[in-house]
Amino acid sequence: MSWFEKFLNKVADYRQPLRPPGAINEKDFLQHCIRCRRCVEICPYQSIKVVKSGLGKKSGTPVIIPRQVPCYLCMKCPPECPTDALQPIVQKEQVRMGVAKINQDTCLPYMGIICRACYERCPIYTEAIILKDEIYPVVVEEKCVGCGICENVCPNEEPSIVVIKRES
């Protein structure tokens, strides 16, 4: 990968932005969210970043970039939101921020390298990621909350598991 691509990847995320837990669907979110950053500031892990790319619609909105810091599902941000952009949820299992996808072409166990980083650290432990044949990680999409912890810990140079926004 050229330095230029790397640079681009750094300044801009390549996906639909992942919103904090409890976020309503993207279209409504952009209308509801008043860009106040209260969710950003309340997050104890600085998981929530702000879209800072010019004057577009998404400018100023909260976003989670799992490879930097994932959401640890402490559930402090939804009640902090003054609008209904983040719906108050209490149970972390109910979060549906996104869904993790595994790229079997690079995921280490599929290459014969033992790795369980995502499986071990998934907060929906042993449910959202299961091990096929006790070796190959597989995401159970119904259970995955999209917190991005798996993407964060994946020890491959480029993550072999990425969280993609759920289309709803």
């Binding site: 950003v40 702000v50 800072k52």
Partner: peptide, 13 residues
């Protein structure tokens, strides 16, 4: 100010 201090980022806006 908030983004600069809390997230250490600045934006064109």
């Amino acid at each position: 100010l908030g983004d600069l201090i809390f997230l250490k980022v600045m934006g064109v806006e």
